[in-house]
Every structure is written in C-alpha cells, then in structure tokens.
Design a protein around this nucleic acid. Structure first.
Length: 732
RNA sequence: GGGCGGUUAGCUCAGUUGGUAGAGCGCUUCAUUUACACUGAAGAUGUCAGGGGUUCGAGCCCUCUACCGCCCACCA
C-alpha cells in the first residue's frame, strides 16, 4: 500500500511556511474568532467567562516595524492565544499611534531632502495633508506586517490615537484636568528645540558627551568677582552673580549692585546674591546668573526678584539690541565675545572640559533653554475626588502596593526613582501634527471645552498636545471611553501591558496617571517588560550600522513560526537579547521536524481510529503518559507565571528530543516486534501526544500547528485557536 | 554624583523555596537514506568574576572588591 494514497501529499515534501502562513491567517480571519463576541456566539467561550485583555502598544506610523515590534507582538500573541485556549473571554485590541513629533520629524526630513522645503514653506494645511498621507501608508504597511507575524488581534476594534473617537477622549480628558486645576498655563524655562521649532518635555531630552571650552573672566576690570562659563554668549543676559552664602571670599559683596557700562557693547546691571545652590568648589565659586536661559538661574531670579532678559530667540540667534551681536548664531556670538574678552584683557583662563550637551531625541537639535508660556500638568496638586492625592501619588501607589506587578520586578525601583524626581509635565507642542489643545482665546478670556464656543471671535490655541497625552488614555480610549461601553466594563482594567522597558516612564507611567485619575482604577494588572533586540555582536540594530534584521525578510525566508520561536526561547523578560539569523534557521528546522513527526505518526496509525478516551495503555505507555502529563503541568505553570522563555524551551525539547528521538524510535521496534496490544497502545499514544504537542505549541508556533491540526484525520474538528488547553490536575 | 542590572561551557543564555552544574549553537567521532540530512547516535568542555561570612550544605542568602552594561541627574 503506497504511502502517498493515505496521507496528505503535502506531508511528503518539506514544510513550506510561505505557502501555508497566509492561507492559515486568512482562515483565522474568516472564522472571526479573533473577536471574543464571535467566540461566545459560536459557543467556544462562556458568556460569563473571565476576561483577558491586552491593549496592543500602538505602533508609531513612522514607517515599518522592526525586530523589537516582532518581539512584543509575539509575546502578546502568546498570552492571547494561551488565554483564549484556556476559555477566557479574550480580547487583543490593535492600533497605531500618530506619534506626533516622531511622525512630523520623519516627514519634515523627507520634505527637506526631496524638495528642499520646510513645513513653513507648505503651510499648516498642506503640510498636514502630506503627514496624513504618509501616516496612512505607514499604517497599511504596519497592519500587513502584524498579520504576517500571526497576531490574533480583533481587527474589528482597531483604533488610532488620532482618530475621531480618540480625539474626543483627548478633549474630554483635557477638559476634566483643566477644570480640576491640574492643567495650567505657565511661563517657565522650557526645553526649546530650535531644529524642530517646538518645546519638548524633560523625558524627550537626551544627553550627549561633548568637549567644550570653559572660560573664566570678569565682566569688567572693576568688577570684583571672576566667573566661569561654557556659554559666554548668554552672559549678555546676566542680571546677577550668585555665590555661596558661607563663602568668605565673596561675603562682603553680597547685596551690592554693579553697573557694567560696556560688556562687549552691552550694558549690564549685576547684583551679587547668595544662594545655597552654588558650589563653592566649582570654577571660581561664583556663578553668573542668566535667568532667561537656565532653569536654576530662573529659580534664583524668582527668589531674588531679578530682572529677566532674554537674549536668544527661537532660532537660536542673538536677539539683543547690539549691532555686533544681533541676529548672530549663538556659536558666532560666543566667538565674538571671547575675542572681545581677550582684547580687553578680561579673559583669565580657557580650559577644555568634558560636559554633556542636551539634544532633542527626535530631531537631534541642541536644546536651548528659553522662557515660554506653555501648558503643564501639575503633578503635585491634591485632587479632591481622588482622596486628596496628587497625580504623583496616584502614579506611585499602585506599584508600591503591588496592585500593578512589574515583570521583572526590579523595575519598581527605577520607577520610584523617576517619580521622586518628577516635575510638572509640559504637554504643549508647537508642532502641527497632533491633537489641538481644546482651548480658545478672545482677548483676555480663556475658554476650555470639548467643542469650540458658539460665538464668533474665539481663536483656538495653535499648539498641539504631547503625543503621550493621547497614548496615556490608550487602555480605556480603545474600549470606547468617554462613552460608558460594555467593552469598558468587561475589559478594563486590562490584564497585561507588554512593552519594552525604555518607555516605562514615557508611557506606562502616563497610563497609570490617566487611568487612576480619570477612572479611579488601574489600567492593567501586570506590566511585562521585554528587552531590546540586538545584533549578534550585541550592538543596537540601526539603519546607520545596517545591522538590522527586517522581520518581514526573515519571515519570508524561514517562516513566522521560526522567527517567533527565535525571539522567545530562553529570552528572559527585561534583558536585552542578541539575535542571529542562524538561530532563526534552527527553528525552521524544528518546524520541519514537527512536520515529519506528523508524517511518521499518521503513516503508522492509519489502521486505527483515534480514541480520545483510550484506556488500555501498556505499562510503558502509561509511564510515558505520566511524563507527558508532568510536562504539561510544568508548562502550564510557566505560562501562568509569564515564563514563556522556559515553557517554549520545554515543549521544544520534549517534541524533538523526547518524542521524536526516543519515543518514535522506540515505536519502530514495537511496530516490528510488539504484541497487538502494545501496538494499539502505542498508536493511540502517538496520536494523543501529537494532539497535545500541537495544542501546547500553538501559542508559540500558531501557523504550523494549525496547519497540521487541519491535516489530522479526525472529522468535525474546530480550529486549533479555540481548542481548549489541556485540563490538568493542580494537586501535584 | 545617584540608582539598577550583569559576570555560569568556545559563543548565546537558563538555573524555581539553598540539596550531585544545564540547554541551544559550535566542536570531535561514528552512522549513509531509515518519518525527517532542514537527520540520528556517542563524546569532550566549568576556579559559577574575586575575597570574606551564614549554613550540615551556597551558582542561589549576607558583605566587600573588580570589571561590563543601562537609566536618571548634571557644575554654571
């Protein structure tokens, strides 16, 4: 009897993921089973089943997905598929993020490169059209990529951080915070990015090491105190010199004011003040106070009632009324002033030092601290209907009280540290792509609401919101808030938030803030933080190094199942991982192994009918059954503990090195020399074990397992995605 | 400056409540078409970074040190 007639011809050839995966994904989509409502409708999920929900971290519409996205998506899909198989009412909400500044920067860069134009050349309306077109294209690419990874997301609930519903959520949240006095407008020294022409928050500033010249000089020959600086050009804006109150060298001068008639052509009034912030041991122990261009100096100016003179404008050019300096770039002005100091014999010392310079993380522009009127969220104000707690406390408490569990838990400490140092969050941006601030002005009057005022003459604030404001609402804005929807009731708080550790502050903290403040509940129970995907040598994958692995390319080559396994097996949470193509290739071999296991099992069991409840196992097979049962108990526990890296390795090891290498080899002997009872027992065992392997492996390798599931001879079988996970006794 | 993490086989990493050191890849030898060569069998490889302590017993707990990595702050 020829083999070919009895088992599917597909199995005679090596497993072909490329042919299989798109077909299987389509099958799933057509079944509708990614949608929990349909699972209930079709009877796969109990209506009152416990819910399990993950909000997919909305992917930035800035281009294509990278390996990090592939990792996160895989981990989440594993959790979703596992919980769906456990019978839970399981929802994975997909979405994308408009990513305001990130997306705008990408489009601006392209515009400059291709057309040599700035956004101002196009104007707000035309520029926004370009951004939207780009965002739309990126969105489509991203959705396609997520499907290729096998993500079992409920596409009917897809959301975008900048669609109509989310925009309403943003306006509603803003209004509520404004009315509670948590959002206020204030004049502050902010991080101004001259390149992006916008303010950025403290979290969006990176520090880069930089060699700088450190100059020590006096404002004039008669001035009693020398000061030091790396930025002489700001010194034309000085209004004081601060010294330590206990510094004997300068005590006698404190309180006096000196007039310098000519400091590089500028007249200065310098008051000598005492402040404990000053470090006696640094430089000359005296600090030239520039209130308009330094945060600490600004604070000193407030305390001492000093005049504030802005000398640098938004384009990082000198705005002081002086013919030598006006309109000059800060770097040019620096040279002019240093030359002048040299000429006048005022420069005492010039040394090279290592310092850090602040740059905007998206544009790379050098941050210029400037005083500006911006919108802030007050993190310290007590909130009446939240038990007089501040936003800071609302963010801190769920983590401190273990109501939200971080995996790995050592991130708790990092989180606390960040909260302790948290200052008011600047939420207004001068970029164009984003949620417009729902505030209108008419003369001195200010109006804040979700809709524009009806009367004429009101002008809306030009600014847009920090992108993290809308992402902060994500766990509940995706479930329909501000409407009181069924979804919101059923799925919030969500169960798990899975993301990379680098946005713990940007995003995770902001979600806790928003959910605790607006809904009075946590946004999720567990935060699973994954590490960064690096190349074989441990370097960050980047375009400039050209060492990135494109997930889609490797999926084409080795299959999504193999890519998923390579990202999961023995890769612990929170820890950066290295990935090499050979490793992915290894799991393609594994897929083929499973394929051939199936071929062997089906070929050797075609005489019998699979009996799920078969009981007459031989003694040997009872031992094997026990071993298999113990393994499933183990794996189930690992899955419940979020230890996918261990569970996946165990099932891999069992499949290849126990089932294939030992049990299948042993079966050949039984089929040759065994009794009829032994043969029947083993045949039933093989079929039963193959079934269990497919089930347990499904969350990790969904495509091949579903494909084989469909090739098994049993009739009336449901899709594997809704096959119940094995029931195990928890007694042991 | 403050904080966090790491150091285990040649490489990449696991190692549950303390109880005889593990996996994958690689390497050596053998098997040569057997469900699978995208294969199988056998094998070699460790001062668990170092010192000290607790314990009957430490890779794991405590303590000190060294080195690597990351985060936050930032001295003008």
């Amino acid at each position: 009897m020829a083999l070919e007639n009895n088992i599917n011809e597909k199995l005679l050839k090596p497993y072909d993921p490329k042919e299989t995966e798109s077909r299987i994904y389509k099958l799933w989509e057509e079944s509708g089973l990614f949608n929990p409502d349909i699972c209930i409708e079709k009877g796969f999920t109990e209506k009152n089943a416990e819910s399990f929900c993950i909000s997919f971290p909305p992917a930035n519409v800035t281009g294509i997905l990278h390996m990090g996205h592939a990792l996160g998506t895989t981990i989440e899909d594993i959790m979703i598929r596992y919980n769906r198989m456990r019978g839970k009412r399981t929802l994975w909400v997909p979405g994308t993020d408009h990513a305001a500044i990130a997306t705008q920067s990408v489009v601006e860069k392209e515009l400059l490169k291709k057309e040599n134009k700035s956004r101002y050349d196009l104007g707000r309306e035309e520029f926004l059209k370009r951004v939207e077109k780009f965002a739309d294209e990126s969105h489509n690419t991203i959705i396609g990529q997520l499907k290729k990874m096998g993500s079992s997301m409920d596409w009917s609930r897809e959301a975008f951080t900048f669609d109509e519903k989310r925009n309403l959520a943003v306006r509603t949240a803003f209004k509520q915070m404004y009315e509670d006095g948590l959002i206020y407008r204030g004049l502050r020294i902010v991080n101004w990015d001259p390149k992006g022409q916008t303010v950025v928050s403290d979290d969006e500033v990176d520090h880069k090491p930089n060699k700088a010249k450190f100059y020590t000089f006096k404002y004039s020959k008669d001035f009693p105190i020398s000061i030091s600086t790396t930025r002489p050009e700001t010194k034309v804006g000085d209004t004081a010199v601060a010294v330590h109150p206990d510094d004997p060298r300068y005590k006698e001068f404190v309180g006096k004011t000196y007039t310098i008639d000519n400091f590089c052509g500028v007249k200065l009034e310098i008051k000598i003040i005492a402040d404990y912030e000053v470090d006696k041991g640094f430089g000359t122990g005296a600090l030239g106070v520039t209130p308009a261009h330094s945060v600490i100096d600004w604070e000193m100016a407030q305390k001492n009632n000093l005049p504030i003179i802005q000398v640098i404008d938004e384009k990082a050019r000198m705005m002081i009324d002086n013919e030598n300096l006006k309109g000059k770039k800060t770097t040019e002005a620096r040279e002019i002033i240093v030359e002048w100091l040299k000429k006048e014999g005022l420069l005492e010392k010039e040394e090279e030092i290592e310092q850090n310079i602040s740059v905007a993380d998206r544009t790379g522009g050098t941050i210029e601290p400037l005083p500006k009127l911006q919108w802030f969220i007050d993190v310290n104000k007590k909130i009446k209907n939240r038990g007089d707690k501040s936003l800071k406390e609302l963010m801190l408490e769920p983590i401190r009280d273990k109501e939200i569990k971080l995996i790995p838990n050592y991130f708790d400490k990092t989180y606390f540290h960040w909260i302790e140092n948290l200052r008011d969050w600047c939420i207004s941006r001068q970029i164009w792509y984003g949620h417009r601030i729902p505030v209108w002005y008419k003369g001195e009057e200010i109006y804040c609401n979700t809709e524009a005022p009806k009367e004429d003459g009101w002008i809306q604030d030009e600014d847009t919101l920090d992108t993290w404001f809308s992402s902060g609402l994500w766990t509940f804005s995706t479930l329909g808030w501000p409407e009181k929807t069924e979804d919101l009731k059923t799925y919030h708080p969500t169960n798990v938030l899975e993301t990379m550790y680098d946005i713990l502050f940007f995003w995770v903290a902001r979600m806790i803030l928003m959910s605790e403040y607006i809904l009075g509940e946590k946004p999720f129970n567990t935060v699973y933080l994954h590490g960064m995907v690096k190349d074989k040598q441990g370097r960050k994958m980047s375009k400039s190094l050209g060492n990135g692995i494109n997930p889609i390319e490797v999926i084409e080559k080795y299959g999504a199942d193999a890519v998923r396994m390579s990202l999961i097996v023995s890769k612990s949470p929170g820890i950066d991982m290295r990935i090499a193509e050979e490793e992915i290739k290894g799991y393609k071999h594994f897929a083929n192994k499973i394929w051939n296991i199936t071929r062997f099992v089906l070929d050797n069991t075609k005489e019998i009918k699979y009996d799920k409840n078969f009981e007459n196992y031989s003694e040997k097979d009872l031992d094997l059954q026990k071993e298999r049962h113990d393994l499933i108990v183990d794996i189930t526990k690992d899955m419940d503990d979020y230890k996918f890296y261990i569970a996946s390795e165990k099932i891999y090891h069992y499949t290849w090195h126990q089932f294939a290498d030992i049990i299948l080899e042993d079966s050949k002997k039984i089929f040759e020399n065994g009794t009829e009872e032994e043969k029947l027992s083993r045949r039933q065992f093989l079929l039963h074990t193959l079934n269990k392997i497919l089930v347990c492996l499904h969350p990790f390798m969904p495509f091949i397992t579903e494909e084989i599931w469909g090739l098994l001879p049993e009739k009336n079988k449901n899709l594997l995605i809704v096959e119940p996970w094995p029931q195990i006794s928890r007694k042991l």
